[in-house]
């Protein structure tokens, strides 16, 4: 997973833009996929990737090499995406209808409606994948994060624990709940 050499990293830390370009090139696909799975929308995913690399660039001299570079990268990208989801939630809760007797998952489902996907978003995915993407987008961010890191980015439980700074047992619990919630959401999805 470590695709950028230490020398490139070092040069990028001195402000060498060619070196930084190599870093962007090495991780842009992976981070765009991550952001799209979080945000279900291409334009917003692109903004999130840009914001991530901007933070990476400005903070690069503060990167602590005791951690793997990708761990640090994923931590920043995950934070950027979750921030965006929270802002979306804050905006949409202003005009959210009050519903009674709903569990938190449904709550999210109601309030966290993603912006309408563009035609290009729709083209990108087959029908089944859309269903899974929609269910993924309806998960609370805590579960969404571990599910994306585990199944989309294919990180190990240890790596996820490093990215999120939480014990492996916590990672597991969140994955279990996330899987269980996805099962419910997919069972509820209308058969099209």
């Amino acid at each position: 997973m470590e695709r950028v050499e230490q020398g490139v990293l070092f040069r990028a830390q001195t402000g060498d833009l060619d070196a930084f370009t190599a870093i962007v090139q090495a991780y842009e696909d992976q981070l765009y996929t991550l952001a799209f799975r979080f945000l279900s929308n291409s334009a917003e995913a692109q903004d999130a990737v840009q914001e991530t690399f901007l933070r990476v660039y400005t903070q690069l001299r503060r990167y602590d090499e005791r951690f793997k570079f990708t761990t640090w990268l994923y931590r920043i990208a995950t934070n950027v995406c979750i921030d965006r989801l929270r802002k979306r939630k804050a905006v949409s809760s202003l005009d959210a209808e009050v519903t009674d007797g709903v569990e938190s998952l449904q709550d999210w489902h109601e309030r966290l409606a993603s912006p309408d996907p563009s035609p290009e978003d729709l083209l990108m995915q087959s029908e089944t994948c859309n269903e899974v993407q929609r269910a993924l987008g309806d998960l609370p961010p805590l579960y969404q994060t571990v599910i994306i890191l585990r199944y989309i980015q294919e990180l190990s439980l240890q790596e996820i624990s490093d990215v999120l700074h939480v014990p492996i047992t916590t990672v597991k619990t969140r994955i279990h709940r996330g899987r269980e919630a996805l099962k419910e959401l997919l069972a509820r999805a209308p058969v099209s």
Binding site: T21, T33, V49, L54
Partner: peptide, 23 residues
């Protein structure tokens, strides 16, 4: 279902946009 979700390539133009912002 999760594993069948495809991995995307970053859209064309995104890298230039990033590098411009970084400058």
């Amino acid at each position: 279902g999760l594993r069948s979700l495809q991995k995307f390539a970053a859209p064309p133009g995104l890298r230039d946009r990033i590098l411009e912002a970084v400058r």
